[in-house]
Design a protein around this nucleic acid. Structure first.
Lengths: 217, 217
DNA sequence: AGCAGACCTGACCAACCAGTCAAGGTCTCT
DNA sequence: AGAGACCTTGACTGGTTGGTCAGGTCTGCT
């Protein structure tokens, strides 16, 4: 009978498998984000991607393994974006680009950000090793760069950690606390508001550490 | 014999009741913060305050009612702190005091902050009305004050909402993401670090909106 | 002392959940 | 065409959870 009723056209066996796994991961990400690990049920995830529950267990051995994959995927996306913090560029450019990139992530990967926040908030039982290795390493290189800027007298003398936390916190707020933001805003942020918020965050951060934000955009 | 083996000396009936309720709420706050609503179990809360599970249901009819009380208590504490944003004071003073107060909250009420973050992140199913009434009203008065400062040319022209979000996000980060902060810091923040972080946040925010942060402290 | 009502709790239950399984369907390769 | 691997799924299960309840204990009052 033609093909599976999935909206995707059937490809090779491996392609089909990958597609199904991605569909499950997408659904799981949303459900985990909305309900947390404990509150999420395999049935809810199954419903969200229109598959029988037993089928989920064919692709992912357990709820925890599925969750781990979801978190790992988020972390990879975050890492990729983190590379936009160019250690070679001028401070204004590097910080501006990084903040803008993180704001985009908050807009486009809201669920993912929430899952990550949830995980860390609950003590990172699954991804503690990532915090201690990859994230630690990434942070250290950036801290070193910021220290260099300070030594060169280009920015104010502050502990780079507090600056990084401020950027992480502020940008992720727009994803993790989206519900609160949208309630106070009487609706989702418009494109113009996203742009304005991004520009304002860049402006406060740059001016805040003694840089000239320069012309917006 | 003497009295109940609780560490508290027995008082009147009403006092005893209040004390027990508070003990349950304290334990529940920690458990809800660590596991989320779905992941928390009444048994875990009971264990955390050394009471039989059935006893919890004597004081709080259901898990949801207990959770609601926990969240309401947090919100009250937050509201109280929010009053330190003195609408009459100079911008430097008002903002400095508010940021410092919120940093203290993050240090002293970590679990509470996490519960609140969890609740909002999951779409605020329990406290949506607070967001729409009390929080909305509080925010509007502060936005008005900040707008006045802008009109008077005292601070840079920015949308006050983004500034408030930045302050909320940054200060709460030290509670909600405490695990990540402490992992990167190889241990809890020292008193000196808390002070330095607070000062840095104040400095960046104030300078960021065109104010002179003045002398630390 | 004695009693009424507040307080406490072990044992229990119905609902729900992650995970299993066996039986049947489908695809690919020869 | 046929074999065998791969995929799908309804029905089931063992364990856990929120919540109940009957019967007990304690407290304050007369």
């Amino acid at each position: 009978m033609a093909q599976t009723e999935s909206a995707e056209k059937s490809g090779t066996r491996a392609e089909m498998r990958e597609e199904t796994e991605r569909a499950i991961l997408d659904a799981a990400e949303v459900v985990f984000a909305e309900a947390g690990f404990g509150g999420a049920t395999m049935q809810a995830i199954a419903d969200a991607c229109g598959l029988p529950k037993a089928n989920l267990h064919y692709y992912f051995a357990s709820k925890e393994k599925l969750y781990r994959r979801v978190v790992e995927r988020i972390f990879m996306i975050w890492l990729e974006a983190a590379d936009s913090f160019d250690t070679e560029a001028e401070p204004e450019i590097a910080l501006r680009r990084y903040i803008a990139r993180k704001m985009l992530l908050s807009r486009d990967y809201r669920s993912g950000s929430k899952v990550w926040a949830n995980e860390v908030m609950h003590g990172a039982p699954i991804i503690q090793d990532y915090l201690e290795t990859t994230l630690q390493a990434w942070t250290e290189t950036r801290v070193a760069v910021i220290r260099r800027w300070i030594a060169e007298g280009r920015i104010a003398a502050i502990d780079p950690k507090w600056l990084l936390y401020m950027i992480w916190a502020t940008t992720q707020h727009y994803a993790d606390f989206a519900h609160q933001v949208e309630t106070l805003n009487h609706g989702p942020l418009t494109d113009a508001q996203w742009q304005d918020a991004t520009e304002t965050v860049c402006g406060i951060v740059l001016r805040g550490i003694g840089l000239d934000p320069g012309a917006p955009r």
